[in-house]
Design a protein around this nucleic acid. Structure first.
Lengths: 226, 226
DNA sequence: TTCCATATTAACATTCTGTTTACACAAAGT
DNA sequence: ACTTTGTGTAAACAGAATGTTAATATGGAA
């Protein structure tokens, strides 16, 4: 299975820092996006749904802690990884950061080596338990390795996009995914497709699976449930 | 996910101050409304139900403290954030302000930086505990992530507006929401709809839930209670 | 290249939601 | 009793959102 590079969003008001981080993370094979203040970070986060967000604590237009708590209130960012950048001395923000729901923090001045290893470690930590795993919901299993959906032992073959769609939805059964969210997660954030594209894929999945496990929430999005 | 920008109402009789504040807060991404005296502040507050009200202490036609205590007597403004603007020297009003039920005060002359950070801090304080959470009242649970209302384990599917309505009411069980308040919270303050619109939605919710958890308070509004 | 499956669009059909209209009903005031 | 005011209900409608189908594009494999 072709693995998309992880999307990382970095927010810091110092362009130099931004570039150092970008350089080192892109070298590692990540896709890096940047924002220069808190509000831009929020906007881009909602637009990209990145896998990891790195937030400087001290930023204009909403500091890192604020951005973090705002994002965390939304279901879509409940499980997004967040790392804080803190001034070395500032211990209290470190604590506060972790309280607010950050997954890690990195002290400035930044050592590229530390940065990269922390980021890798974080992805490793979640990937071991989360990603690439066969989902099992009721009598349906979704195996991303074999690229196979099985219902009561019957194998169903899905096309790539169809599979990614059902895999996304099924990764959090019950949770509603906004159309926007689905678009960026499955199609990628630069691709622009028409309104009906999602529907058509949903339809095909429903059709192929034969059972009714994708529910429409009108005006909102879709969710997986049996 | 669509998030409405926070609504802020500012009341001050000096147009310059009004504009400075407006400029800085709009830059932060907030929606700003203004009033030039105490009475206008009250009127606009009741019309907008803003998330935050910034009141100058010295104003014609009811000063800030008066406005604050008047608003605080109404349930609808019990949880609205209020900040006072005070003259630097005037310590007694600061104390009085906090006694009256303000959440913070800012000394004049105003530093945009201080202003913005105080405002952000205030929102952060409340946002961490409030938003996006599953409500649980008695045997009813209202889950905005799954977009689902559950009564004794039975799932009830509501349309978007219906859900937003019940979620608002249930967010403060027992508290009466004025019709106006419901309109601005659920429909938004620019949308104009007819008188019966709320009723019809209330009716549909009652119907779908099957149990009687929305109480009519005639001449006033509705409240959630079991 | 040609073939084939997949992905996307376009056009149209369908469903559902939100809103209004019209009227019934209840409570309170005169 | 009559009027006024406010809410409940049902039906009807417009428009939004989604479903469906077929046609077209795309891209990879033979």
């Amino acid at each position: 299975m072709e693995v998309k590079p992880k999307q990382i969003l970095i927010a810091d008001d110092e362009p130099d820092i931004l570039e150092i981080i970008r350089y080192n993370l892109e070298k590692e094979g990540y896709d890096v996006h940047t924002a220069k203040d808190g509000n831009e970070a929020i906007d881009k986060a909602k637009q990209l749904y990145p896998d990891l967000i790195i937030l400087d604590i001290m930023m204009p237009r909403k500091n890192g802690v604020e951005v973090c708590s705002i994002l965390r209130t939304q279901p879509s960012f409940q499980d997004t990884l967040i790392i804080f950048l803190t001034a070395m001395s500032d211990e209290s923000s470190q604590i506060k950061g972790l309280e607010t729901g950050a997954d890690d923090y990195i002290s400035k001045p930044i050592s590229p080596k530390v940065l990269v290893s922390r980021v890798n470690a974080l992805f490793r930590r979640v990937s071991t338990k989360e990603a690439g795993k066969t989902l099992q919901i009721g009598n349906i299993s979704i195996d991303p390795v074999k690229f196979l959906v099985t219902i009561n032992g019957n194998e169903v073959v899905l096309a790539k996009k169809e599979f990614e769609l059902i895999y996304l939805l099924a990764s959090k059964p019950g949770r509603v995914f906004l159309r926007n969210e689905i678009l960026t997660q499955v199609w990628g954030n630069e691709v622009i497709v028409g309104d009906r594209t999602i529907d058509v894929h949903v339809r095909k999945v429903r059709q192929k699976l034969g059972i009714d496990c994708i529910t429409t929430v009108k005006g909102v999005g879709y969710k997986f449930e049996i």
